[in-house]
Amino acid sequence: MCGAPAFPDREGVIEVKQLTKRYGRARAVDDLSFTVQPGHVTGFLGPNGAGKSTTMRLILGLDTPTSGEALVNGRRYATLGRPLHEVGALLDANALHPTRSAYNHLLWMARSNGIDPVRVAEVLEQVGLAGVARKKAGGFSLGMKQRLGIAAALLGDPGVLLFDEPVNGLDPDGVRWIRDLMRSLAAEGRTVLLSSHLMSEMALTADRIVIVGRGRLIVETSVKDLTERYDSLESAYLALTAGSVEYGAAR
């Protein structure tokens, strides 16, 4: 990393502040505020269309907020010089060029952020794709693509990690592997924001929970708190989101 962090007390913190994003008249994210701290896995939950992916795109500076802001390490993502060293993200495992090899896919990413190519081999090993590194990514199963996306997120050894539904398409071994990986990344003191639909899996992986519905915050708390108030995370989720399971963003 380049020099001392600008905001030592906000190192590793994701701050979402009154964030609103409209597409036309639809509000995908609506005055949303929450904070994600390092050292935990924070589960990001909500029904389909609740605005989870949009929030992640806003954090990564890919979409421009209608109002409000999102900060990582106390700064707007767009102001980061070589962002892979600070933030790693998996948004869509299918975002690959079908005829490019897994190795070259990671290598161009490494090049663009001045990362030692040695890291490419390391992360491929770490996600279990070393054996197919020279194969075209287009031929991978969804589970293998998810692993490649995770490898990409880990490439710069970042302190902050965002994963949008990384468990989709993984076999039981893979699901277990992700759970252990997320927990170990958090145990190393990193910030992990993880969205998923699999409630039982989230109960085993996450320490903290942010639930959104129709773009708004429903609850921001610990898994322990929810499982104490309801008999399981799943019933907590179903009770809390009961009013907001409606497809299409709030108008």
């Binding site: 795109r57 990564l60 892979l84 869509d92 299918n94 975002a95």
Partner: peptide
């Protein structure tokens, strides 16, 4: 355009926010 078609453009722009 192939980056827009595959969604890779998001990766590219996340890596180089400028």
């Amino acid at each position: 355009t192939s980056e827009y078609a595959t969604g890779l453009i998001r990766t590219s722009f996340a890596l180089v926010p400028g």
